[in-house]
């Protein structure tokens, strides 16, 4: 029972922050709501026995990715966006489609009896950093390495993209 209350409380916060993020006019506020949402999801990860992923989520998403977002927003002064749009009809259609997506998914999940099964007894070391580390460096070492190369490529790409061509050669 307590578990359910915690779940609904957190789920409420998650949905509220997500909605707030989409609705609010100010991009900085949006970013902060997203940070809140990410932190709530990290708490869910903790509840789900995945402390490692939860910590990585906070460190990477909240600590790095969203700070980057804030940076760019503040640097560009892009809190509020002006200008015209030629897609006035888009919003209602998008809303309807989103509702259909959520509705269909909910319908599908509620229909499936397997999803209602309670959590089985959890093997103790699941989600424990040592287990994850071992698995990453044995079974999934190839994707792991590929990821590292991907990060390197992204890094180089960002340096190239962000270099101001006007200041080149100085």
């Amino acid at each position: 029972m307590g578990e359910l209350i915690v779940f609904y409380l957190l789920a409420g916060i998650a949905i509220a922050t997500a909605l707030a993020m989409v609705i609010t006019r100010n991009a900085v506020h949006s970013a902060l709501f997203l940070v809140l949402n990410l932190v709530v999801v990290a708490v869910f990860y903790l509840l789900l026995g995945a402390p490692f992923v939860a910590m990585v989520q906070i460190a990477v998403y909240a600590g790095a990715v969203m700070v980057l977002f804030l940076f760019v927003i503040m640097m560009l002064g892009a809190e509020r966006v002006g200008g015209a749009t030629g897609l006035r009809w888009q919003a209602p259609l998008a809303g309807a489609m989103g509702a259909a997506l959520i509705g269909g998914a909910l319908f599908a999940f509620l229909q499936t009896p397997a999803g209602l099964a309670p959590a089985g007894s959890l093997p103790a070391p699941l989600g424990d950093p040592a287990t994850i580390g071992e698995r990453l460096l044995t079974t999934y070492v190839l994707p792991f390495e590929i990821t590292s190369i991907l990060l390197l490529i992204a890094m180089v790409g960002v340096v190239v993209l962000a270099r101001d061509s006007r200041s080149e050669g100085k």
């Binding site: 578990e3 359910l4 779940f7 789920a11 998650a14 949905i15 997500a18 909605l19 989409v22 949402n37 869910f44 789900l48 989103g98 509702a99 997506l101 959520i102 998914a105 909910l106 999940f109 509620l110 499936t112 397997a114 999803g115 209602l116 099964a117 309670p118 959590a119």
Partner: peptide, 17 residues
């Protein structure tokens, strides 16, 4: 009792938003 369905539903809602 929190089930997988709870989480999947929450996930779907967040995704939809």
């Amino acid at each position: 009792m929190v089930t997988l369905t709870h989480y999947l539903a929450l996930s779907a809602i967040l995704f939809g938003i």
